[in-house]
């Protein structure tokens, strides 16, 4: 049994806020002159290795010869049957793995190859796995030119599957990558977010340079935690800005709109935010603005409690008052 030590540091507060962060993209991998034919072969139920200058046949193929560094162009077809050279067993498959029931991972040397390929073996039970076992490819029913055209391997000494040439050469494979994280904030950031949930903007002053940071953080100039809490007003001055005219993925507003750096009264570092409530071409450096909060009933520990900033109608701040913040 593992025993765990716990350690408590710093002031006692509510635990830092955390939330899921999921990233997901379908990567498009261009394959080139070696991996392209290999993937094309898999689509057609053929396994192509290649032969390096020393005569060894590599499956999966190598793009460059490790000894001569030359491109490896000599493609060689090998059998869809092979021998397990190493294995392990997975009781609880992870998201994205070839099988969703317990299975074996194995290094498999296909007949005709000198190196081994990593793939899954649908053996049913751990007890059936052993080094030296004979396996054959189980092809996926739908094949696109992808390593997953091999659905998995299965125990067996021979194969009746026949290759079928079909279609254009494969040049690109698509690989989805989906990852889930928990993003954890610092204690300072959590205090800031909890204050936001109460409609307050919280800053903290650096004990060394005396500058007020919003949101609070370790002072990036001095490398020390900021500690003294300072309430900052939800009014401020536009230091600089850009007019976003370009549409892009994930955008929430229709262009054009203004994203500005806003120096809140009492803070020493600007925050970025939207300026709405006037035409984009009327926004000015030095313009006085105020936060427009959402309905208090919807407030959470989120900067989204502030919907945007609007002009206050006060006279513009003189350039000298914010020129140190550009």
């Amino acid at each position: 049994m593992r025993r765990l030590r716990t350690c408590f540091t710093g002031r006692v507060t509510a635990p830092p806020l955390s939330a899921p962060l999921n990233i997901s993209f379908d990567y498009t991998r261009s394959l080139g002159p070696v991996l392209g034919p290999f993937m094309t072969g898999l689509r057609d139920r053929r396994v192509l290795g290649n032969r390096t200058a020393d005569g060894r046949v590599h499956v999966p193929p190598l793009e460059y010869d490790p000894a001569t560094h030359a491109p490896v162009t000599d493609l060689v077809e090998v059998r869809p049957t092979g021998t397990v050279t190493s294995w392990t067993w997975t009781d609880r498959p992870l998201d994205g793995q070839p099988l969703d029931r317990p299975f074996g991972w194995a290094l498999i040397r296909l007949d005709g190859a000198d190196t081994a390929l990593l793939h899954a073996v649908d053996a049913g039970a751990r007890e059936r796995m052993h080094t030296g076992m004979r396996v054959r490819i189980r092809w996926a029913s739908e094949r696109t030119g992808h390593i997953r055209d091999i659905a998995c391997f299965e125990p067996g000494a021979d194969s009746a599957d026949r290759a079928e040439a079909a279609g254009e050469p494969v040049t690109i494979m698509t690989t989805p990558i989906r990852l889930s994280y928990t993003h954890t904030t610092s204690e300072d950031e959590s205090r800031y977010l909890r204050a936001l949930a109460e409609g307050r903007l919280l800053g903290q002053r650096c004990p060394v340079c005396r500058k007020v940071y919003v949101p609070p953080r370790v002072c990036p100039a001095d490398g020390v935690p900021t500690e003294e809490e300072v309430t900052v007003r939800d009014h401020g001055t536009v230091t600089t800005f850009c007019v976003v005219n370009v549409p892009f993925a994930g955008q929430r507003l229709d262009p054009p709109y203004v994203v500005a750096q806003i120096l809140l009264d009492g803070a020493d570092i600007p925050i970025p935010h939207l300026i709405l409530g006037l035409p984009a071409d009327r926004v000015r450096m030095g313009m006085r603005v105020a936060a427009v909060w959402r309905d208090p009933a919807s407030w959470t520990t989120s900067p989204e409690n502030i919907e945007h900033f609007r002009p206050t109608g006060e006279p513009d701040s003189p350039y000298e008052s914010y020129q140190e913040h550009l």
Partner: peptide, 19 residues
């Protein structure tokens, strides 16, 4: 999480500094 989705895009970071 916990950051404002301001959505300025790639050039949106540098354009204000150019201004």
């Amino acid at each position: 999480p916990f950051t404002a989705p301001i959505g300025a895009g790639a050039g949106g970071y540098f354009a204000p500094h150019i201004r």
